[in-house]
């Protein structure tokens, strides 16, 4: 069917819905700082994820409308970069660095230990929504390998046991 004349368009619905949420306001101010430039899309997505925790469809549509970009372009960019997530994350995040230095020093064993204990794979969240397990390509902390980031804080020179213990105290 050709664009629906009677039904409200998705973008209109999102813009109307967004007007009640303060976070959309903050995001819009941020876009304004970048003069609504289309090349600031990645910066805007960073800010959006920081505000909302993850990038849901309506949020992407809001950004597309404000930056005057086709939604397919915004979605294409948001899914190209690993840093962006389109799914909500758990209460806590645990990012295991799988860079070479960490890998040769046993990061794979740390990964295996977490996967076994919490029965989730990389990129997944526990059913109780407590823990999201993620991996990083290299966080540049090779001198203190193997490193794991717990809720944004890097912990150095870990073992599988020490990692599980950290998670225990976290959750």
């Amino acid at each position: 069917m050709l664009p629906l004349l009677t039904r409200e368009k998705n973008a209109d619905r999102v813009l109307r819905h967004a007007s009640g949420d303060k976070r959309f306001k903050i995001l819009e101010v941020h876009m304004k700082k970048h003069q609504f430039r289309q090349d600031a899309l990645i910066e805007v997505l960073h800010k959006a994820q920081e505000l909302f925790g993850f990038l849901e469809d309506d949020l992407l549509l809001f950004i597309a409308a404000k930056l005057k970009l086709p939604p397919s372009r915004v979605f294409g960019v948001a899914t190209f970069y690993h840093f962006f997530t389109l799914k909500p994350q758990g209460e806590h995040t645990c990012v295991v660095c799988l860079g070479t230095a960490c890998y040769v020093k046993g990061a794979d064993k740390i990964m295996a230990a977490i996967q076994e204990k919490y029965r989730i794979k990389a990129g997944e969240t526990t059913p109780d929504n407590q823990l999201s397990l993620l991996t990083a390509r290299c966080i540049g902390a090779c001198g203190i390998a193997p490193a794991v980031t717990f809720d944004g804080h890097v912990a150095p020179k870990l073992t599988p046991e020490a990692t599980l213990e950290k998670l225990n105290t976290l959750i």
Binding site: L60, P70, P71, S72, F75, G76, T79, F80
Partner: peptide
Amino acid sequence: GTKNVAGRGATARIISDL
């Protein structure tokens, strides 16, 4: 601008809108 590529590598795929 309906079509675009989403994802990357072997999981890249053609999408419509969002």
